[in-house]
């Protein structure tokens, strides 16, 4: 059986050109559109395929875990009791915070609804670690929105279709997220390297970081909000800081997308319409105190760099 050599050669050339131009960091607009259209079309089919496969996949673990369930149940009851105490405390603190905000005339940071979505596909190949989720621009998902599961940050949206979106995981080679230690505010950049434990890069020489420190997003890039739970700091064999992700505590089956309106830069929103003092949202920046322009740097000029 012989096929046209010209056609074969042409296909080789097209494939090579695609490899050369479809770079994850600088993808041409028309390729982004093609990718979104294909994933949008495939999303319902993938969902349909996933249902029976999920069922098959759960049979083994279900029987394996039967004897563990009683123990787990007892632990959960204990945790629930503990959580009730924390819930009451959180509610009390929220009330206090509202009173302080009112007294200080602070504009609260935007608290928007979460968009729940099922994961339709989770290819974990050698080149990319991403998830395809069943919610797109039709439900308010936007590019760059953070994505969380029950335990913590999973990644952020990199491609948006009408009905589906692709989420780049924190472990992906191309993922870079500014983070900080909750305890000391030491800043770093969480860098994915296709392992399960992303690295902490650009950490200062004398950074105040300890094993087990809780790592959260710092919001320094203005793309992700501040304070989203990421994981705990851990040292690897080579003495390099890495993060044990909270989101790894459970399979990423169901996620929440947080629609987040990133802070516009001065170039994007010039001060011409400065007659609306609370226009730029942010707890520190919007404080109408004298010299308030300078206080805006407090949030980003922490130690640890």
């Amino acid at each position: 059986m012989r096929f046209s050599r010209t056609l074969t050669l042409t296909l080789f050339i097209i494939a090579a050109l695609l490899i050369a131009f479809d770079r994850p960091d600088a993808r041409p607009g028309f390729l982004v559109a093609v990718r979104s259209a294909v994933t949008d079309t495939a999303a319902p089919l993938l969902d349909l395929t996933a249902r029976p496969l999920r069922g098959i996949g759960n049979i083994g673990p279900y029987w394996q875990r039967q004897h563990e369930l009683a123990v787990e149940n007892a632990e959960l009851q204990e945790q629930l009791t503990e959580t009730r105490y924390w819930r009451d405390l959180a509610l009390r603190l929220r009330d206090e915070r509202d009173i302080y905000r009112e007294a200080l005339n602070l504009t609260p940071a935007s608290e928007q609804e979460r968009i729940g979505a099922w994961v339709l596909a989770d290819p974990t190949g050698p080149f990319v670690r991403s998830r395809l989720v069943g919610a797109g621009s039709g439900r308010g998902v936007g590019e760059g929105d953070p994505v969380l599961n029950v335990y913590g940050l999973v990644g952020h949206v990199v491609e948006v279709g009408q009905r589906s979106s692709r989420v780049l995981l924190l472990t992906d080679l191309n993922s870079r997220v500014p983070v900080m230690a909750d305890r000391s505010n030491a800043r770093a950049v969480l860098t994915g390297d296709n392992t399960n434990f992303p690295r902490l890069d650009y950490l200062g020489r004398d950074a105040d970081l300890q094993e087990g420190d809780r790592i959260v997003t710092s919001g320094d890039d203005g793309i992700l909000p501040r304070g989203l739970p990421v994981g705990t700091a851990a040292l690897d064999r080579n003495g390099r800081w890495r993060v044990r992700l909270f989101s790894d505590n459970a399979p990423v089956d169901f996620v929440w997308v947080l629609p987040y309106d990133r802070l516009p830069t001065p170039e994007e929103e010039p001060a011409a319409s400065a007659d609306a003092p609370g226009a730029i949202a942010g707890e520190v920046n919007s404080e109408p105190a004298p010299g308030g322009e300078e206080t805006g740097t407090i949030a980003t000029a922490e130690d640890g760099e």
Partner: peptide, 12 residues
């Protein structure tokens, strides 16, 4: 496309 990787790799 379905795995979200760069286009052309598996095709090639």
């Amino acid at each position: 496309l379905l795995t979200g990787g760069p286009m052309g790799i598996w095709a090639f």
